[in-house]
Amino acid sequence: MLIMSIETSCDETAIAICENGRKVLTDQIFSQADLHAVYGGVVPEIASRSHVEVISQLAQRALTVTGLQKSDLDAIAVTYAPGLIGALLVGVNFAKSAAFALDIPLIPVHHIKGHVAANYIAFPQLAPPFLCLAISGGNTLLIDVKDYTDMEILGATRDDAAGECFDKTARILGLPYPGGKHIDTLSRNGDDTKYPLPRANIEGSLWDMSFSGLKTAVINLVHKAEQKGEELDRACLASSFTRAVSDSLVPRTMALARELGYKKIAVAGGVAANSRIRQDFETAAKNEGVELFIPPLSLCGDNAAMIGCQGYYEFLAGVRAGTDLNAYANMEL
C-alpha cells in the first residue's frame, strides 16, 4: 500500500511516499530555517507563506523521484494537529483537495504520533508496547505507546518544552538559530559540573517536568556575570545546561519504564538529536538491560515519512477524514 504524506506543522514543508508504513520511497523536505534565522525563531506568518509557495512542486518531486504516478497512490495522510495553525492549514487543505480529486482515502495524523512512528522506520523490528519520550521544540512528553494508535501521556512538561529551553539558552549565549545544534557542539569541550543548575523536578509529581526554572537560572547566571563584568565560560555553561536537561529526562524515563515493566524505550523528536542526551540514554539502557531506540538524526526532526508511517497504522485502524477535516493548533494525543 502506497501512502503520500504531507507535513506542514512548523517550518519544514515535507512530502513523503511510504510503502506499507515502514518503507520510505522518498522523503522530500523543504526547510525554511534560513528564512526564520534572522528573526531568531519561527515566524508563523512567514512559515505559512512559504508552505503555500512550494507545496505543489514538492508533491510533484516526490512522484518524479520515485517514478510513480498519482494513480499509484492508495491514500493521502496529513498532519492535522498540533502545530502552527496557519502552517497546518496549508497542508491540510492541499491534502484534502488532492485526496478528493484522486478519490482516495484521507488519513489525519497527529504530529506527535508521527514522531513516535519515526522509530518504526528506523527499527523494522520495533513494535508496541513501549515507552516513548518525545522531546521537541513544542513538546516534552512521556508516552505509553500501548499500540500503534493507542497512546497515553503519563508525564509532560508543565511549562517550557525541552527544545524551547535549548533555543532560549542558545539565544542567551549569543548562538545563532536554531540553537540546539550549536549548543551541542559548544558543550562538547565544556566541564558539565562548573555551573550548578536546577533539575526539572516537580514536587509530588514523579513524571511531570518543569524547564522554566532551568531557563531562568541560565538567564540569572548570565546577567550576574555581566553585572560583575566577569567572563562566563560558554562551553562549560552549554555543557552544564545540557547535563541538567539530560538529568531531568533520562533517569525519569528509565524509572517510568521500570514502573510499567517495559523493556523497550524509544526517544523521538528534534531534541533526540542531541549527542549528550543520546549518550546518556545509551549508558542508562545498557546498565538496566533495556532495549533503546533512537532514530537517526534525519528522522528526529520534522519530516513527512514519519507521518506516512503513522498514517499507515491509522489506516489499518480504520481512521479516515472527510472533506470537512480541519486543522488544530492543539489536540489531545
Partner: peptide, 20 residues
Amino acid sequence: SFTGIRIGISAVKGLCWALD
C-alpha cells in the same frame, strides 16, 4: 485575509495537482 486566501489557494493547488 492572509489565512483565507491560503486556504483557497492550497485547496486549488491540491485539486489541480491531482487533476494535472
